[in-house]
């Protein structure tokens, strides 16, 4: 579903991504983990072209994302993106946040969009929050609205950039539950996360990055018990033993 081939990217002299290649088969869930500054967020942002690449190719569902001939706006409707800081539209209610893009981009009628939006919000446990503005919602609720907003475009791929890093600890679970449910429904997902337990539980593969490179890829059972590289061992000893 997602293919990343030899992607390079630098900010000035700083090489953020070095020759990164990765495939994500349909319905797979991949966790991108690694120390901060490893290039995880940059990599996930290149998948929907929020971040341009210097060279290399990324395709999603057969469409070359960084090709100038690709209509990126059409391609993006197939790729949901959830941000660390939610980025909800503060002047719109929860329901309006969810229905805006289906109406303005897909041309759905207000009724259709609202029907689908209400279904999505309800399935994410927000049935009583349709008319609430983002600043009246907790962080966990806001992030679930953001997930509903991305899902409203019916994407085939969902990308999560540290979806729980900005949340209070007691709200992490509700967001992870929502992602877990999507995994169960067979959504293809890439998740940048620091939640190791979660990564271990729901992901098909762990991709470990450091210094702009993919250092190790392994099934969670293998990665968390017996990683091949010294770099991954060091990282795990730091994040697991505290």
């Amino acid at each position: 579903m997602i293919t990343i081939k030899n992607v390079n990217k630098s900010f000035g002299d700083h090489h953020v991504l070095t020759d990164v290649s990765l495939e994500v088969p349909k319905s797979n869930v991949i966790a991108l983990i690694g120390p901060s500054g490893a290039g995880k967020s940059t990599l996930i942002r290149t998948i929907n072209a929020l971040e341009p690449v210097d060279n290399g190719e990324i395709t999603v569902d057969g469409i070359s994302i960084h090709d100038k001939k690709t209509d990126i706006n059409v391609a993006r409707t197939n790729i949901g993106f959830v941000f660390q800081s939610f980025n909800l539209f503060p002047f719109l209610t929860a329901l309006e946040n969810v229905t805006m893009a289906p109406i303005k981009v897909k041309g759905l009628s207000k009724e259709e969009a609202e029907k689908r939006g209400k279904e999505l919000l309800t399935s994410l446990g927000l049935a009583d929050k349709f008319d609430a503005y983002p600043n009246r919602l907790s962080g966990g609720q806001q992030q679930r609205v953001a997930i509903a907003r991305a899902l409203a475009m019916d994407p085939q791929v969902m990308l999560f950039d540290e979806p729980t890093s900005a949340l209070d600890p007691e709200m992490v679970t509700e967001v992870l539950d929502a992602i877990r449910k999507l995994a169960k429904d067979g959504m293809t997902m890439v998740v940048v996360t620091h939640e190791m337990g979660f990564a271990k539980e729901i992901c098909d593969e762990i991709v470990f990055m450091a210094e702009g490179k993919i250092v190790e890829r392994a099934a969670p059972s293998k990665f968390f018990t017996n990683p091949d590289t010294q770099r991954a061992q060091d990282f795990l000893s730091k994040v697991l033993n505290h």
Partner: peptide
């Protein structure tokens, strides 16, 4: 905030 434009673009606008 910059994230507003990014969120809108990520939805295909």
């Amino acid at each position: 905030p910059k994230g507003q434009m990014e969120a809108a673009r990520s939805l295909g606008m």
